[in-house]
Simulated assay, not measured.
Amino acid sequence: MSKTLSTTLLKGLDVLSAFEGASSLTLSQIAERTGLDRSTARRMALTLVEARWITQTGRAFALAPHVLRPAGAYLQAGAFGRVVQPILNAHAETLGGEISLALRDGDHAVYVAHSARPGARVSLGLTVGSTLPLDTTAIGRVLLGGDQPSQVMRGAYEPGICGLAVPVGPTHAPQAALGTTLPLALPQLEDRLDTTLATLHMAAADLHDMPGLTQPASLRQ
């Protein structure tokens, strides 16, 4: 490891990351998830409590609202609320359902914006900040790049659901993707797949002014 890096800071970040998918953790669980010894895990956790990044109730630790501040700054800097959200809202209305924008973070897709028409079926129940492995969803497979042709992977992540996605940016290495879902039992499904992908492409085109994003190809799951 480079001598210019702070190993203490990295350990603290590991502790914060340990809470992914968990509402609360004990010190033993934090140590197990991070690979830190218990005394180091305790020191990191108590420091994060003091800094208001996590809270402590008895033996349980949980993320504090303070962790949303850097995320909020990231979204604000990227104009997600002012520029992206209205675009997603308009296309969710056209789709009559939901639409999500995700960015690549290593081997995961991180959902950074979402819109659903009132009363629409929300299949995955994902929210802003949700993460999923790249190979489990249509959006994730788009973010893997490789100029892949359109695909249909029926029920790959959720039974009875077909996921569709298009990259926003270079097709060989996109950093962003748009996606939605359709029930596999939908009448005239093949026609709906085509019209839905067309809408996703239009949404991607509307986002072309976002830094580093351009018009993409598509992938069906």
Rank of each mutant, 00 (worst) to 15 (best):
A73Y: 14
Q148M: 01
Q148W: 00
H208G: 06
A41N: 03
L5A: 12
T40Q: 06
Q85E: 03
E93L: 14
A116Q: 02
S130D: 08
G78W: 06
I54Y: 01
S218M: 00
V142Y: 01
S100G: 11
L126H: 12
L219E: 00
V152Q: 02
G58A: 14
A22E: 15
E32H: 12
E190Y: 04
L178V: 13
Q148G: 02
S2A: 11
R104S: 03
G212K: 05
R82E: 08
A31Q: 00
P211L: 14
L25W: 03
A79W: 12
E98A: 11
P86W: 08
T137N: 03
L36A: 04
A203D: 00
L193Y: 05
R117C: 06
A116Y: 02
H201L: 09
N89F: 07
Y74G: 15
T137S: 10
V83M: 02
P70W: 06
T214D: 05
L68I: 09
I87T: 09
D194M: 07
T195I: 11
S28Y: 05
A90P: 03
I99S: 01
L124C: 06
L13G: 08
A90E: 01
Q151D: 10
A60F: 15
S28D: 13
D209G: 08
A31E: 00
H201T: 08
A22L: 13
G146T: 10
S17R: 13
L101P: 00
S39T: 14
S23P: 12
G212D: 11
Y157T: 03
L68P: 07
Y157C: 02
A138C: 08
L10N: 14
L103W: 11
T199M: 04
H114Y: 10
G155L: 06
P170N: 12
F19K: 05
T181G: 07
T7A: 09
L126I: 15
A217H: 10
L124F: 09
A77M: 15
G21S: 09
A205G: 11
P65C: 10
